Simulated assay, not measured.
Amino acid sequence: MRARGGFLVDLAWEKGRLSEATIQASRDGICTVRSSWPIVVVLNEEEIACSNMGQLTSFNVQHGNIYQIIAR
């Protein structure tokens, strides 16, 4: 699915809760994800720095990279 800002998003659910997602960036910039549960963002098997404000998590992205979003 395409998300606002030109991101390609793939979601996986388990028992009605997000278990994992991937986000492919189509441009450089900042991606912001809204989640009711804490998440971590992984690029190339390493957790990357994020800014968390309540239900919003923001992180820098680069065109073409695929980011894995994991619910804690």
Rank of each mutant, 00 (worst) to 15 (best):
D10H: 15
S36L: 07
N44A: 08
A3F: 03
C31L: 09
G54M: 03
R17P: 00
R4A: 12
I30R: 06
V33R: 00
A12S: 09
Y67D: 01
A21E: 15
W37N: 06
E45M: 02
A21L: 15
V61R: 00
T57K: 09
L8G: 04
Q55A: 12
S58I: 01
R27E: 02
D28Y: 06
S51G: 09
D10G: 12
V42G: 02
Q68A: 10
A25S: 05
L56C: 11
F59I: 08
Q24G: 10
Q62N: 15
K15Q: 15
A21S: 12
N44R: 15
A25Q: 00
R72W: 13
V61A: 02
R27P: 00
G29F: 01
T32M: 10
Q55T: 12
L8C: 04
S35I: 02
C31Q: 02
R4D: 15
N60F: 10
G16I: 04
G16F: 05
I30W: 05
P38E: 04
G64R: 07
C31E: 01
E45F: 03
R17M: 06
Q68I: 07
E46V: 06
A71Q: 10
Q68F: 14
Q55Y: 15
R4K: 14
S36P: 03
Q55R: 14
M1I: 09
S35K: 02
R72E: 14
L8T: 12
S58A: 09
C31W: 00
G6K: 03
E46Q: 10
R4M: 05
G5Q: 00
L18D: 03
H63V: 08
L18Q: 05
N60M: 13
I39C: 02
I69Y: 00
I39A: 00
D28C: 05
C50L: 11
G6H: 05
F59V: 08
E45C: 03
E46P: 00
M1A: 13
I66F: 07
L18C: 06
